[in-house]
């Protein structure tokens, strides 16, 4: 979403971007003989390089000149490439991924809560808060927002537009790596993980409002709640259809998203 704002990049490989860093870590342990913490660091660094820098240089920059649609198609191709690449060269079956924290359960007021889920929520909340602080509270962050809102004007004011866009790609890469390390212990690392993740994230963003970080979070929560209610009270069989159903409903009734603002387009 940040990418969309600063560089008009819609990344249909975003789900695969979350799938891949876990395999960077697994590969670093298997082939590099690194310990798990070292492999996490290495996986993070490789993610920044490959999913941030190289993605920008080798995919987005050469293709976006020809328009947004070719880029969309390229990211779909990239998604397939990443998925099949992992299947061919690493493993086709789900790989266990170690958790960096305790996996016990806690009893809280009669409910069983897994520590793992709490950690995920806490780390995700922290990451979002840090991102929001960076974007709104620092000069560099505001320069990035400025670049997103009006790149031509940013250039006129002497804001280093290219560097701001690069930061955006790096932040995106960092966040997907973080997400990968958080969810892989639960879902296991599998080459198809990106499919569901990408779909859910994309729908969450559209449902919440494509141009608002808050919106995407709200959209994600809504999706999760509706999903679980349907599974519990109606039928788990309809579960897979829920995101798509929500997507259609929102596009029909409130195309700018629940919290989104209507974008003005100047001709």
């Amino acid at each position: 979403m940040l990418l969309w704002q600063t560089s008009q990049t819609i990344n249909f490989a975003q789900g695969e971007f979350v799938m891949l860093p876990a395999f960077f870590v697994l590969a670093a342990m298997k082939f590099g003989g690194l310990s798990f913490p070292m492999a996490m660091l290495a996986g993070f660094a490789v993610s920044l390089l490959v999913l941030g820098l190289l993605f920008k240089r080798l995919v987005v920059e050469p293709v976006i000149r020809h328009g947004v649609l070719p880029l969309v198609i390229s990211t779909i191709a990239l998604a397939i490439l990443m998925k099949e690449g992992v299947k061919e060269f690493y493993a086709a079956d789900a790989q266990p991924f170690p958790a960096a924290w305790a996996t016990t359960n806690l009893q809280v007021a009669g409910m069983v809560v897994s520590v793992q889920n709490l950690v995920i929520i806490a780390v995700a909340a922290l990451a979002v808060a840090a991102l929001q602080y960076f974007l709104a509270g620092t000069r560099t962050g505001r320069s990035m927002q400025a670049t997103a809102q009006n790149p031509a004007l940013a250039r006129v004011l002497g804001i280093p537009v290219g560097r701001m866009v690069l930061y955006t790609f790096l932040i995106n890469a960092g966040l997907v790596a973080l997400a990968s390390f958080l969810v892989s212990p639960i879902y296991l690392a599998k080459f198809t993980n990106g499919e569901t993740l990408g779909l859910v994230a994309f729908v969450a963003a559209i449902v919440g409002g494509f141009n608002q970080v808050r919106g995407a979070i709200a959209g994600g929560l809504l999706l999760g709640v509706v999903d679980n209610f349907v599974a519990a009270y109606l039928s788990a069989q309809y579960r897979a259809a829920i995101p798509l159903f929500l997507l259609i409903a929102v596009i029909l009734l409130r195309p700018q998203g629940l919290l989104g603002r209507v974008e003005e387009r100047t001709v």
Binding site: R139, R142, S143, Q145, A146, Q149, N150, A152, L153, A154, V156, L157, G158, I159, T266
Partner: peptide, 24 residues
């Protein structure tokens, strides 16, 4: 240079818009 048309960053505050003018 003040270009033609509307040239503000709509979602930043007036103060932050001003500040960005001092980037250079």
């Amino acid at each position: 240079y003040v270009p033609q048309g509307r040239n503000v960053f709509p979602e930043l505050t007036v103060l932050h818009n001003l500040e960005l003018g001092a980037t250079a």
